[in-house]
């Protein structure tokens, strides 16, 4: 099996029967790939070169393909942002433990909902799915946090957002794809649902867990709205809240900020660009490790019938 998988990873044509059409196809795909890279990389490349260029040239649109009068002043300024390291640590904390909480709640519920035996299964599924289209809005949710005494607590961030229905459905669909013969066999051996879940289904679901885990991690890492409004202590705030503040500041405070001339080394804009780069780095480091789990496959599908 494994060599077949490998062959498939090498591009879909297994053995060496290469027609001209096949080669042309590969070349076209490769060209599309390169174009895609350009389209996606350019804006990011732009952020990088803008973050090291002199701000006046960034503002007047001269920075396009290469940095102008490169300097690292913006990074130095970015690193001086108050609470930067604390918030970086907080972001790591919320992402790491948040994903654990997410996975604990989502996998159990998804597994239960994936079993046709479950009583009121349709009702419970609908209950979850319904929230994707109907949500209460900001103020009622805030009042809920208040009533539970969760304002300004890390617990609010970790447990207030246990399940993303979308991700839970992905997991549920995956569990549904696992051949039921495995479950039946385990039942005959007298295994409980808990054991089947933890010892058969979870180990089998690594790709799904990796994908959904990644989704959760991204959401956790990028989230700013609720952390900003629920947390009032500066020591608990994550990185994105800081970043957001700088971004919004840019529009609000620019009326009174310093004048930019050709001599200025950094401006709020370039500092923001520097911070964006700093904030993306952890995700770029983590992503390739998760990518390898995709190889073994994941199918989310819908209920048959």
């Amino acid at each position: 099996m494994s060599h077949k998988v490998k062959a498939r990873n090498n591009g879909g044509s297994a053995v060496g029967i290469e027609s001209r059409g096949e080669i042309a196809f590969d070349i076209v795909v490769a060209i599309i790939g390169v174009l895609l890279i350009l389209v996606c990389v350019y804006p990011i490349y732009y952020v990088v070169i803008a973050s090291i260029s002199r701000p006046l040239y960034v503002e007047n649109g001269e920075v396009m393909f290469r940095p102008i009068m490169a300097n690292l002043e913006s990074y130095k300024e970015a690193l001086k942002t108050p609470y930067l390291w604390a918030s970086f640590g907080n972001s790591l904390f919320y992402t790491l433990f948040g994903v654990l909480v997410n996975m604990a709640f989502s996998t159990t519920m998804a597994y239960a909902l994936s079993r046709p035996r479950l009583i009121f299964r349709k009702f419970f599924t609908l209950l979850a799915v319904f929230t994707m289209w109907f949500s209460a809005g900001i103020i009622p949710l805030y009042m809920t946090f208040r009533d539970f005494g969760l304002l300004d607590s890390r617990a609010a961030i970790l447990f207030g957002f246990c399940i993303n229905t979308y991700n839970m459905i992905i997991l549920k669909s995956f569990f549904e794809q696992v051949p039921s013969s495995l479950e039946e066999a385990a039942f005959i051996d007298g295994a409980s649902d808990f054991r089947i879940f933890t010892q058969i289904y979870l180990p089998l679901s690594k790709p799904a867990l990796a994908t959904v885990g990644l989704f959760y991690a991204v959401t956790r890492w990028n989230g700013y709205f609720w952390p900003m409004n629920l947390l009032t202590s500066d020591s608990k705030v994550p990185l994105q809240v800081l970043l957001k503040k700088l971004l919004v500041d840019r529009t609000a405070n620019e009326m009174e900020s310093a004048i930019i001339t050709a001599e200025s080394l950094s401006s709020q804009t370039t500092v923001i660009y520097a911070l964006i780069i700093l904030a993306i780095i952890p995700m770029i480091i983590v992503y390739p490790f998760i990518q390898k789990y995709f190889k073994s496959g994941l199918t989310i599908g819908a209920n048959k019938g």
């Binding site: 990011i44 890492w221 990518q291």
Partner: peptide, 11 residues
């Protein structure tokens, strides 16, 4: 694959 995924991180 990596590069197309990055834009998602820019606010």
């Amino acid at each position: 694959q990596t590069v197309t995924f990055i834009p998602y991180f820019i606010s």
